[in-house]
Amino acid sequence: MGVSQVMGTRGPLSLSELEESLDRHRVPLAEFRSGRAIAWNIAWELAGSTPLPRPVRYRHPLGAVTWVDLDEGTSAQILMQIDLSVLSSTQRPSVTLGPEAAASRDFSAGARTTGFVLPGDLDDPLVPVAKDQSWFGPHLLKAGQFTIGAKGEEIRVDSFPDALEALRKMKVPRWRRPNPQGNWGIVSGMAWKRLSSCFSRGAV
């Protein structure tokens, strides 16, 4: 739903301190006074709390209570939304181009805070979109690699920029992605659209 940075902790807090900070923790005072929540006396100090434009699904391991290690694909979806959220007020329309036209544009490239170097428009690259509206993006990282290419000619690429560049050079871009049942199959790109547009439509 959103992200925050943990800056530190404070506590254990006394009952009077917990009562004084009700506007921050929002735990009913009756829970502390009764003793039911008295163990909740350590405060996490957060900074930079930001809601995501679109919630990201993740797999919650059995037994995990406080911390969960997110897989690379889930982390990539979150990171890309954080970077793209600044585009929401000036979002550019989608464009539909053939791969040759997309490759011939004068694209810039540079480092992003996500660690990706995106071929294409620095902040909002063109990505291939399939007939079912699924699209190629950083969220398709599986076991540290992207799988692209036609069946029998597939290659695995470590980085999103390299995979995107290779897709642009294909006559028909093809890549593997999970269907609603979680099975990974090959789809073919039918159009090229802005990455921010794919996120805003909720396509997966």
Rank of each mutant, 00 (worst) to 15 (best):
M1V: 04
G2A: 09
V3N: 14
V3T: 13
Q5H: 13
M7A: 05
M7Y: 01
G8K: 01
G8L: 14
R10S: 02
G11L: 00
L13Q: 02
E19Q: 04
S21M: 14
L22S: 12
L22T: 04
V27Q: 02
L29I: 12
A30L: 08
E31C: 05
F32P: 09
R33M: 06
R33S: 09
S34K: 07
A37N: 07
A39W: 11
N41F: 02
N41M: 03
N41I: 12
W44F: 14
L46P: 06
L46D: 12
A47F: 01
A47N: 02
A47K: 02
G48K: 02
S49Q: 12
T50Q: 15
V56Q: 03
R59D: 15
P61L: 08
G63R: 04
V65R: 02
T66R: 05
W67N: 03
V68A: 13
V68N: 02
V68S: 11
D69G: 11
D69N: 05
G73V: 01
T74Y: 09
A76G: 01
A76R: 01
I78S: 01
L79M: 12
M80E: 10
M80P: 00
Q81Y: 11
I82N: 09
D83G: 05
L84H: 14
S85C: 13
V86Y: 12
L87A: 09
S88F: 13
S88H: 11
S88V: 15
S88D: 15
Q91K: 07
Q91G: 09
S94E: 15
T96I: 15
G98Q: 01
P99N: 10
F107G: 05
F107M: 14
S108I: 11
G110D: 12
A111E: 12
A111R: 04
R112Q: 14
T113S: 08
T113Y: 07
G115R: 03
V117I: 13
P119H: 00
G120V: 04
G120Q: 08
D121T: 05
L122Q: 10
L122R: 05
P125D: 13
V127G: 08
P128N: 11
V129P: 12
V129L: 04
V129A: 11
K131Q: 15
K131H: 15
K131I: 14
D132P: 15
W135E: 14
G137V: 03
G137C: 08
P138Y: 00
H139D: 10
L140Q: 01
L140A: 01
L141D: 03
A143C: 10
G144V: 02
G144Q: 05
Q145T: 12
T147Y: 06
I148M: 07
G149M: 11
A150I: 06
K151T: 09
E154N: 14
R156Q: 15
V157R: 01
D158A: 12
S159M: 13
P161N: 07
D162A: 14
A163K: 01
A163Y: 06
A166T: 15
K171R: 06
V172D: 14
V172G: 00
R174Q: 09
W175Q: 09
R176H: 11
Q181E: 13
G182R: 03
W184L: 13
G185V: 10
G185A: 14
I186R: 04
V187G: 07
S188W: 08
G189S: 09
A191N: 15
R194C: 06
L195V: 11
S196T: 15
S196W: 00
C198H: 01
C198Y: 04
C198D: 04
F199G: 03
S200D: 11
G202T: 07
V204F: 01
